[in-house]
């Protein structure tokens, strides 16, 4: 289930990525800087740990920026790893679709719901909402209050 953190560290540093690998309640998490995220994912995919499947990808508003989590899975070794990176609110996220095509839709969704830009995505338009809808998963966007609902 859990990959070896030292092996992960070695793979990432061999690829020239400054990473911090730790074990949390989530599992093995590798924190990488935003500009090296694609290199880190590429290294993990090509390594003998064989992380061939991007199971999921999500973003979270931490209050200081958007934290992107990539969830990779190696079916041959039955191991999962989470790669986390921080993107500033006004920055662009580099697409990893040519490494993992499964990121195509989740990237679009993350970009529109968290209000960041996509870089290198073949179809970077909105996925779920229409033009003019705010970045709904941002903490600054509030849900409707009880009064608003009552006065519908």
């Amino acid at each position: 289930m859990l990959p070896d953190a030292t092996v992960l560290n070695r793979i990432l540093s061999d690829a020239g990525v400054t990473a911090r690998v730790e074990e949390t309640t989530l599992g093995i998490v590798a924190h990488v800087p935003c500009e090296m995220a694609v290199e880190a994912l590429s290294a993990l995919r090509g390594s003998d740990l064989d992380f061939h499947m991007l199971l999921d990808m999500l973003g979270a508003d931490t209050g200081e920026g958007i934290e992107i989590t990539y969830h990779l899975r190696s079916l041959s070794r039955d191991e999962d790893v989470f790669v986390k990176t921080e993107v500033a609110y006004d920055a662009a996220l580099r697409s990893v679709w040519n490494l993992f095509p499964s990121a195509l839709a989740p990237e679009r969704e993350t970009a529109e719901l968290l209000g960041i830009k996509l870089d290198g995505h073949p179809n970077p338009k909105r996925l779920l909402t229409t033009d003019g809808v705010a970045a709904l998963l941002r903490k600054s966007v509030a849900v409707r209050s009880a009064e608003e609902v009552r006065a519908r």
Binding site: V133, L136, V141, V143, R144, V149, R152
Partner: peptide, 15 residues
């Protein structure tokens, strides 16, 4: 009818 359990979400039409 009214938006139901999702009424608080700004993307949902209230009925």
């Amino acid at each position: 009818n009214t938006g139901g359990p999702f009424r608080e979400y700004p993307n949902v039409v209230l009925g």
